[in-house]
Amino acid sequence: MKIFVVMLYIGILLMFICTESLFLFITEQELHFQFTRHPNLADFFLNDLRSLYDITYVIQKLGHFICFFFLAMLLYWALQRWLLVVLISVGFAFLTEVAQLFFSRSGRLLDVGYDVAGLILFILLYMCYRFVEWLYSKVFTSEVRRH
């Protein structure tokens, strides 16, 4: 069942990724796919940081970050193996960005970085949670022993 939930989430992400216009999908619920046989693969290495002051750009990049945070969370929930979570998340980040080049979207290496940042935040928050849990158990155990 857990794997089904992860696969459903991945399927939804792919739908968002491959639709020609995410804006039209969100505002008018219109899905449109346009396959390009020979995209310019050099576009993958373009840097579009000059758009950093555009609110739409910032929202899109936050979307990358949040989507991959939840992907990592779901993968860890289903697999319980950090190496698999990292490999699948990073692999999926590369795959989706390259796939966008074939679907009239702008796939960028920089976006892989935003995706990986979401993964890293999940790992850091989970490690903090486990540390606090461990610390609490040590404090609670030592108080029980004193009484």
Score class of each variant (00 low, 15 high):
V139C: 04
Q60D: 13
R130L: 14
F44C: 01
Y53Q: 14
A72N: 01
E133C: 11
I123F: 08
V98Q: 01
E20G: 08
V90S: 05
E143K: 13
S104R: 15
M15S: 10
W82D: 00
H32T: 09
Y53W: 11
F35W: 12
I88H: 03
Q29T: 11
L75H: 00
L135M: 10
V58S: 05
F35L: 10
F92K: 02
L22E: 09
L95P: 04
R146K: 09
S142C: 08
M73Y: 11
I10T: 07
S21T: 02
I120N: 09
V90I: 15
F4C: 08
P39T: 03
I59D: 04
V112G: 01
S137V: 02
G118Y: 03
V132C: 11
D43R: 06
G11R: 01
R108K: 12
L124D: 07
D43K: 04
K2N: 15
L119I: 02
F122T: 00
F122G: 01
I59A: 13
C18T: 15
W77N: 08
I12F: 10
Y57R: 08
F122N: 01
E143L: 09
L79I: 12
I59F: 12
F68H: 03
L24C: 12
I10A: 07
G107A: 01
A117R: 01
L14K: 04
L125Q: 05
F35V: 05
L75Y: 03
V144C: 06
Y136K: 14
L13A: 08
M7E: 08
N47I: 12
M7N: 08
Y53P: 02
Q100N: 03
E143C: 12
L124S: 12
E133I: 05
F33G: 04
V98D: 00
L83A: 11
L62I: 11
M7C: 15
Y53A: 13
V144E: 15
Q34H: 15
L49Q: 07
L75P: 00
T36I: 14
L62M: 14
R105G: 00
Y76W: 15
